[in-house]
Amino acid sequence: MTENQSKVNENNQCNVCNTVTPFIKELCQTYLPQKDNLISMLNEVQEKFGYIPVEAQKGLSEYLQIPMAEIYGVITFYSRFTLEPKGKYTISVCLGTACFVKGSQKIMDRLTQKLGIEAGQTTEDGLFSIDETRCVGACGLAPVFTVNGEVHGRATVKMLDEVIDQLLAEEKASQ
């Protein structure tokens, strides 16, 4: 890592610190310092930042009087919580039974092939993340995939290609 890059990284991290700490403070005002509030608070952090920054873990640890190791244990247990930042677009393919029976594995295969990453990973440019989800409840539209929560139903490989190509084109245009 060159000196410049490390400086950039430091700056980025500080940006996160700057937003995480006030957010945690705010959160502590809405929740009582009871241990059973941990998961609800983590859900809010995940929702806000797309992952759970270590600063947030520290903040919650102090407020709720729970050791960091235990918080780490909880975060890694639940699939909704992640420790790494997600890409700008999170594409989730439903691998619930109803979608699986209708061929969602093919959609997932195409997606990992097209983006060159596995489920749970993020592309190097930070643009795309792939998730596998179990049932978003839109079984009537199976198979489905979602892009940042927006559902694309009765999905085909072709439709997936079009959606990704369009996002790439939009990104290119905005640069």
């Binding site: 009871q34 241990k35 059973d36 509030n37 941990l38 998961i39 609800s40 983590l42 859900n43 995940q46 729970i66 244990g73 909880v74 247990f77 639940y78 699939s79 909704r80 919580f81 179990r134």
Partner: peptide, 25 residues
């Protein structure tokens, strides 16, 4: 209301109780 966070096992009643208490389910 208590929110789950994506763990199938939490549908099992005692795991669910652990989760409500804020622990690993």
């Amino acid at each position: 209301i208590r929110l789950g966070a994506g763990a199938f096992v939490c549908g099992e009643e005692t795991a669910l109780l652990e989760s409500i208490e804020g622990k690993r389910g």
